[in-house]
């Protein structure tokens, strides 16, 4: 690990002031991802600004029936929170399906949004990797890529975003609240992460001088069901090969509207907007689910070793939709 200096601000304003005025500085929250990256010397900050003391660790109901989640809420506190379990089970399931209990006890919601890819070429310090070393190319394309992305890839990068939580946030249309010294802004969870294009090093819309303060979950209509389906080799403690978060709003026996987000298949939680249109005002059956799955994967561009992810993801979508359907009856 490269040497760094360490600061510990106590207010958001102090933190924002520091990050803006300290070259080479970076925020440290739970550290479960960043400390690992620093050990690998993939990320080498010269100043660590430890934000764990900031008052951003509350989960509170909103007047509109939604919920606001402080960005420093720990993943386990989020996953186990009674309100989340009751009103947003898809989020609880997604959060508790990721990492391990120990990691979730440290990892924060904001940190989870900022999580780095698991691509081993990104992590190995030396292979060409445009995400780590802009313009150097993608080693995974001609190397090992069985776990890599099949949607929204580019010739610069085929890495995936590893988070489970973000997939549920995307399907829940969560809103991310961001602050800088100058302004406060909001962005939809589905728009927070960026596809690689020609600049895979730019992973989110967050500017270096900004901080995530809160995630807002809009209220869900009472007749809503949801679920998170994740597939990995091991039962647990593994990143998703493919996952889907599904939220269905019901009107009688019909789906009024539905949202589908995928994990493990793209550089961001992948919203299936076209497939969602098929769900609108439709009667649920296996045929509908399968056509949603087909539609969702229409643009898939797998590589040699990850072709299986196309069919797997279709199956995951069908399973998630039928599970959410079963919960409605």
């Amino acid at each position: 690990m490269k040497p760094f200096t360490y600061q510990r601000p106590f207010t958001v304003q102090e933190a924002l002031h520091s990050i803006r005025n300290t070259p080479g500085s970076i925020f440290l929250a739970g550290g479960t991802n960043l400390v690992d990256m620093m050990k690998l010397e993939v990320i080498n900050p010269s100043v660590l600004i430890d934000i764990n003391q900031l008052p951003l660790n509350k989960i509170e109901p909103l007047p509109n029936g939604g919920i606001q989640i402080g960005s420093l809420v720990r993943n386990s506190d989020l996953g186990f929170h009674p309100l989340i379990r009751k009103n947003y089970p898809v989020l609880s399931q997604a959060v508790l399906s990721g990492a391990s209990p120990q990691l979730r006890n440290m990892a924060t919601v904001g940190g989870n949004l900022m999580q780095k890819t698991r691509c081993s070429y990104y992590r190995d310090e030396i292979s060409p990797c445009s995400k780590r070393n802009p313009g150097s190319g993608c080693s995974a394309l001609k190397g090992y890529h069985a776990e890599h992305a099949i949607l929204g890839t580019s010739s610069s990068c085929i890495a995936t975003h590893p988070s489970d939580m973000c997939v549920a946030l995307s399907a829940l249309e969560a809103i991310i609240h961001i602050e800088s010294e100058k302004e406060k802004r909001k962005i939809a969870a589905s728009e927070f992460h960026l596809l690689p294009g020609n600049s895979p090093e730019k992973e989110t819309v967050l500017e270096p001088y900004e901080i995530i303060v809160m995630i807002e979950l809009p209220p869900l209509p009472p007749n809503t069901t949801s679920c998170y389906i994740k597939v990995s080799h091991r039962a647990l403690y593994e990143f998703a090969l493919s996952s889907a978060a599904v939220v269905l709003e019901w009107e009688g026996e019909k789906i009024k509207q539905g949202r589908i987000a995928l994990g493990g298949v793209a550089a961001k939680p992948w919203r299936c907007f076209q497939a969602e249109r098929l769900l609108e005002n439709s009667l649920p059956d296996e045929k509908l689910f399968r056509s949603c799955a087909e539609t969702a994967l229409q643009g898939a561009e797998p590589q040699k070793e990850n072709q299986y992810k196309v069919e797997l993801t279709k199956q995951v979508i069908c399973k998630a939709l039928s599970t959410a359907f079963k919960r409605s009856v």
């Binding site: 081993s120 292979s127 080693s139 190397g143 091991r234 647990l236 990143f239």
Partner: peptide, 25 residues
């Protein structure tokens, strides 16, 4: 164990990518 076929380096040289069973398995 997966080797990169160009460089010969082990690609999954950690316990997150080289999978051994966990209790739930």
């Amino acid at each position: 164990t997966v080797y990169d076929l160009t460089t010969g380096r082990v690609v999954n040289d950690n316990l997150s990518d080289y999978l051994i069973p966990v209790m739930a398995d």
